[in-house]
Amino acid sequence: MPVADLVAENITKQFESAGQALAILQGVSLELSAGQNLVILGPSGAGKSTLLQILGGLDPPTSGTVQLRGVNPFELAGRELARFRNANIGFIFQDHHLLPQLSALENVLIPVLAQQRVQRTSVERAEQLLAAVGLSQRMNHRPGQLSGGERQRVAVARALIMQPVLVLADEPTGSLDTASAQAVGQILCDLSEKEPAILVCVTHSEALADQFHRRVSLANGRIVEANQSSI
C-alpha cells in the first residue's frame, strides 16, 4: 500500500476554558495523497478550523501526529518550521489577508520573499497564476481596488505560488456571493489538481463541497461521516 503524502493520526486538541478542559478534536485521522482534495464540513464549533490549523503546522495538537511527506512539522523549530511551511503549505482564509499596501502581483509574490530573493521566474509564475485565476488585467491593482471575489482569487494564487504539497482553505468563499464562491471553488479545485497538491478545504457551503472529490463531516471533534471508505 503506497504511503500517503499527508498522514494525520489520532489528532486531539483540548483547550482550557473557565477552568474546564474543552475537547475540540477527539482522535481525528486522515490520509491524503498529492492531487487529492478533501472538503471538511460540520457545524460551527465542530473543530474544522482547528483541524486545518493543525494540518498547516500553525497550531500543535494536544496529542496525535501529523506528517507531510514524512515530516512532522511540530518537530521542527522556529526558522525550520517557517521554511517548511513556506515550501510545503499554502493557506487561504475567509478573510483574504492581503497586504493592502501591495499590488495583487506583489501579494502573490510575498511567500517567495519569505525565503529568497524574488527572481524573474517567480514573477512569471505569479503572473501565470494570476492569469489562471482570471486576473491578468488586475495584477497591478491593490486589494482596495478589487472586489471580494477577486481578492480571494489573489489569495488562491498566493497559496499556490510556492507549488505547495498541501493547500489549506478555511472558508475561502465564506464572504463571497454565490457566483464568486462558485468561481473561486472551481479555480481552487482545478489549480490544486493541476499543480498537483493536496487540497483540504473547510466550508459550510454544500455548493462548494460538491466540487470536491471527497468529503468528511465533523461533529463534536470527531469524524462522523465520510463518503469514501479510504478515509
Binding site: 478573510d95 510575498i110 519569505a114
Partner: peptide, 16 residues
C-alpha cells in the same frame, strides 16, 4: 496584526 499573521503563515520567520 493579520499582515503579521499571514506573513508568519506563509513562512516568514520572526526575524524576517
Amino acid at each position: 496584526a493579520n499582515q503579521l499573521g499571514i506573513l508568519t503563515a506563509v513562512g516568514f520567520g520572526f526575524p524576517k
